[in-house]
Design a protein around this nucleic acid. Sequence first.
DNA 1: ATGAAAGCGCTAACAA
DNA 2: TTGTTAGCGCTTTCAT
Lengths: 348, 348
Amino acid sequence: LSKVTVSKVINNRPDIGQETKERVLAKIAELGYVPNPLARGLVTGRTGTLGIVVPDLSILFFSEIARSIESVAAKRGYCLLIGNSEEDPAKEWNHLKAFRQHRADGIFVASVLSVGQGESLDRLQKEGARMLLLDRIHPEVHCHQVGTDDEKVGWLATEHLIRLGHKRIAHLLGPSVSTAIGRMRGYQKALDEHGLALNPAWMVPCGFLQSEGYAAMQRLLERREPRVTAVFASNDPVAVGALQAIAEAGLRVPDDYAVVGAGDTVQADLLKVPLTSVGWDRGKMGKKAAELMLNQIESEHPLPPQRLVLEPLLLVRASCGELTGSGVAAPKPRRGRKSLRRQEAGCP
Amino acid sequence: LSKVTVSKVINNRPDIGQETKERVLAKIAELGYVPNPLARGLVTGRTGTLGIVVPDLSILFFSEIARSIESVAAKRGYCLLIGNSEEDPAKEWNHLKAFRQHRADGIFVASVLSVGQGESLDRLQKEGARMLLLDRIHPEVHCHQVGTDDEKVGWLATEHLIRLGHKRIAHLLGPSVSTAIGRMRGYQKALDEHGLALNPAWMVPCGFLQSEGYAAMQRLLERREPRVTAVFASNDPVAVGALQAIAEAGLRVPDDYAVVGAGDTVQADLLKVPLTSVGWDRGKMGKKAAELMLNQIESEHPLPPQRLVLEPLLLVRASCGELTGSGVAAPKPRRGRKSLRRQEAGCP
DNA sequence: ATGAAAGCGCTAACAA
DNA sequence: TTGTTAGCGCTTTCAT
């Protein structure tokens, strides 16, 4: 029995006799033999490893996606490497290089790069790296991309505030990545559609962190007339920061300020003021991304880059109040739509 | 110039001339050459890869630890593989096997295995896997272990309730892993020290998930006399579940029930009722674990297994009220000790 | 249908 | 100090 025969059995080659095949399989089971992925990778170039780079794994949004990707990867026999870029392009690049070096078969990345700065990613892709852009999109990169319709996210949030009667609506604007920019566009579009003025002073620049939302809201609170009555935050952590700043100033939500977030990543029901947010399915994001990637990897012919857009959904809770806009705080009851939150926190 | 020479330069071997060394280095920089870790791993057995297996990456406690490990791993040139066991021993084992197969230089595991069931881990260790037990300890496994003093966690929580005047204190008991058992012991010890009766009916079995805490608290609420006035939950998610059940029953915290958690992983300040909890430093856990592991890997001689125990700290907030035990809800002001929470949520 | 030969990119041992 | 030889465990031709 030569090792070539064994190799053929393991790789399910057609040119092998049924009887020998079974004999080999039996022996493999008996000896508990497992092939060495390094040796295999050295010759085939494929390692059975994927990689993912995110800004920060301890942000629920990303850890949920990573978890979901890992789950389907494991099911199909792949391992997952993970790297935190910590919002630092250099660290992101280092992880990308390291994963390439380790011959990851595919790399998911929620890039910290600003829109328009994606050439390095496109170069990687052209050099043969199989990549998939997660959440944050770069049109110039020719690879699969999975995200949500961020313009619609911003539109849904702002439209909701307008319908509640708000006319002076601020936006805590995120960093210069596609998601933040899309949400801002949606905000502007909604104002526009309703003929509301777009006051540049109401677009407060801000990052994606809770602390930044806090600081931005403080700045907004200092401003005098004309005061805003509502705030659309670029994401939930920022919204939570804003909530903190408002509370500290002795003001109330939704009575003094209505607040909407984006992402629906907060344990909303337990908050002092349950946060209204626009959400989409992170589990599905991860699942779809992983499937796209693995199908790509395992297909013979290169598939055309695909762009998957998940549908965002407004989740109304108490932080925007009822129809008067600055009146009662009674939260609208949640509609019949199934909640997006499959989230189940636990341990230790 | 032979490849052997290059290899020697890269590995900093002493038997190489200063001048050739520089020449090689220059050429490497010029060509952008990077060694292939697979080929290297094939011959040396070392791959520059670590692995971590946790119950669920989307639980903040674990994602913070993973993030911290990844950070020091990256700094020292290692990649990190990650696997979710989803509280399933079979999945845990599969990840462990896969990481071994991929020749990870070391594996961190927060095992789902019950205490006393750690033989498989010890066998792995004996077979040459370098392992480190995270959070959940198995005394029979001979490897590094990093966790907290869970008995003290339980003791601090329960002692706090007793000092506030509570005499009938329930415990939402976690699964049969070391952390839950330790916390239960601490609970019993504190009761004991104060001569308080340990009513078995007040130890409600429960998992580590929020939904389980919710269900367990509901069961507890159904029970009649003698009613408890306080609850120590095995971890924060369970405490949050209990909070929900109490609120739904139309009762109030801390007026009707005082509640303490463990882990301090909840955005406590934003909750309707900020949760008092016993916490310890997850960032430090990850950092120390990674350092222990990497020093082990890079040392010539095997180091003796070390057991690192982080100090837990009571963080008093509003969920237990003030000294009367069922009186006013005014939260004690946080003491001067530096907060453990370096947490900064943000994105997507 | 099976296996011998060659080689993936590296390092360890040894020779020069 | 340098380079030659061998081999890590696999897969890929290409004979048989």
